[in-house]
Design a protein around this nucleic acid. Structure first.
Ligand SMILES: [Zn+2]
Ligand SMILES: [Zn+2]
Ligand SMILES: [Zn+2]
Ligand SMILES: [Zn+2]
Lengths: 135, 135
DNA sequence: ATAAAGTCTATAGTAACTATAGAGTCAACA
DNA sequence: TGTTGACTCTATAGTTACTATAGACTTTAT
């Protein structure tokens, strides 16, 4: 199949597929006489694997590592596990940060009566006074 | 004060300060005879305001808007409030996404016994079978 | 035969910095 | 006075994972 069909099947953009190839996540496929890329079922599987990993927010570099590991099926899998676990920690950390952020934003939002002027706006006042506090 | 001192006081890097100037968040300060930037207390306040906004994850473009609004103190403040509210929604959305992500990652992590080979690794098997499901 | 749709490469843009290179400035010290 | 070291200057490139062109070529359909 040509790149456009693969793109539809995987819900990737054509440019993204070419980008993955450049980044060595997909191996360069065969070309037609007219120099069009020609993919097979194995390319499709590979790309879907990549997409699955991306929905887990794995970086391209991490996915590259996973793909390399898969080609050495008999070595230990610790590194896979470590990668996932360190991800979990990062995600948890980010959730904490965002919760605290949300609180601050809610607090700010409540200080705005929403029918005054910029001068009177509690949000801007709060932002400015926080600055003063830090100095 | 020179840029290095401002950087220390605000816990910003020197490059970041110059970057903010280029991006019009800080106005260009006076220069010494030797062409060094010279800052005063007002620059310090401005930069701390920016930092405060950045900890709330406001984008530079949004901060630029806030700074512009502050120079028209008598207009309505709705836009300030809307900006903050839309941020809150984005943050909430992201928290939801991350929680779901965390679940998936935890599930994956549990499928790895951690003392087998790549071939046996539950994580890679799971990632691969999820692909198969989608096809 | 021609037009439309798809594909090709190469290049630049995105956000918010970070990290150089290479040159100039300034204060202190021997 | 000369020199060292710390600081600053501009300009440029790199980061991540794409996205969006431009300009040329290929294929498909009418
Ligand atoms: Zn990671
Ligand atoms: Zn307000
Ligand atoms: Zn926003
Ligand atoms: Zn495993």
């Amino acid at each position: 199949m040509k790149i456009g069909e693969l793109a539809k099947l995987t819900d990737c953009s054509v440019q993204t597929i070419r980008y993955y190839e450049k980044e060595q996540l997909l191996k360069s496929p065969e070309r037609s006489e007219g120099n069009f890329r020609l993919y097979n079922k194995s390319s499709l599987k590979q790309l879907m694997f990549i997409k699955q990993c991306r929905t887990l927010d794995l970086t391209l570099s991490e996915i590259r590592q996973l793909l390399e590991l898969q080609s050495s099926p008999s070595i230990q899998c610790n590194s896979v596990n470590n990668m996932i676990d360190s991800h979990i920690q990062q995600v948890e950390q980010r959730i904490k940060e965002l919760n605290s952020l949300k609180e601050q934003l809610n607090y700010l939002s409540n200080t705005c009566s929403n029918n005054g002027t910029i001068e009177q706006c509690g949000i801007l006042q709060k932002l400015t006074s926080d600055v003063a506090k830090n100095v």
